Simulated scan of single mutants.
Amino acid sequence: MEEQSFSSPVTTPSQDSKNIALLVWIGTIFFGFIPALIVYLIKTDDAYVADQSKEALNWSITVIIGVAIAWVLCLILIGFLILPVIGILNLVFCILGALGASSGKLFRVPFAIRLIK
C-alpha cells in the first residue's frame, strides 16, 4: 500500500498565528461561533489562522444544527439525552483543536459539516 502525502497550506506557522488559532478554539468553547467568525473575517492574510478559524466556524455551525435537532427531539424525550452528548463533544473537539493549534498542526474535526470551504 502506498501512503499519500497531504500538502498543508502553511509549512510552519508563526507563534502569533498559533496563539490566535489557540484563542479561536478556546473562544469557541465559551462563545460559540462568534470568535471564529470575527477572526475568519479579519485575519485573511494568515493562511494558518484562516484555516483554523474556518474549521472552528464549521464546527460551531455543526453544533448549532445538532442542538436545534436535539431541541426538536426533546418533544419525544430523546433530545434530553442528545444535548449533553453534544456539549461533551463540543468541549472535547475544541480542546483537541486548541492542542493542535498550539503545536501548529492543522486540526480537522471528524464530524464537522464543512459548509465554509
Rank of each mutant, 00 (worst) to 15 (best):
G104Q: 11
I69M: 02
I86G: 08
L91I: 04
C74I: 10
I64V: 09
L91N: 07
F111T: 11
S103A: 14
L99K: 09
A36T: 06
T62E: 08
V63C: 06
N19V: 10
A56P: 00
A36W: 02
L77G: 10
L115R: 12
V92F: 07
I42K: 13
I113G: 02
N90V: 01
I113D: 02
I88V: 12
G27Q: 06
P84H: 07
I76N: 10
G79I: 06
F33Q: 06
I26R: 04
I38F: 06
I88P: 01
Y40F: 14
I38H: 13
W71R: 09
W71P: 05
A68R: 01
W25M: 12
L57H: 05
G100M: 11
A50C: 10
I34A: 15
L81H: 11
F80D: 10
G79Y: 03
G100E: 04
D16K: 14
I95R: 11
A50Q: 15
I29P: 04
K117I: 06
Y40V: 00
I26K: 01
A47D: 11
I113Q: 04
Q52H: 07
N90Q: 05
L91M: 08
V72T: 11
I20S: 00
A70R: 07
A112G: 01
V10Y: 12
V10L: 09
P9T: 04
R114A: 13
S102M: 13
S5D: 15
T44E: 13
T12C: 14
L57C: 05
A112P: 00
I34M: 14
Y48F: 15
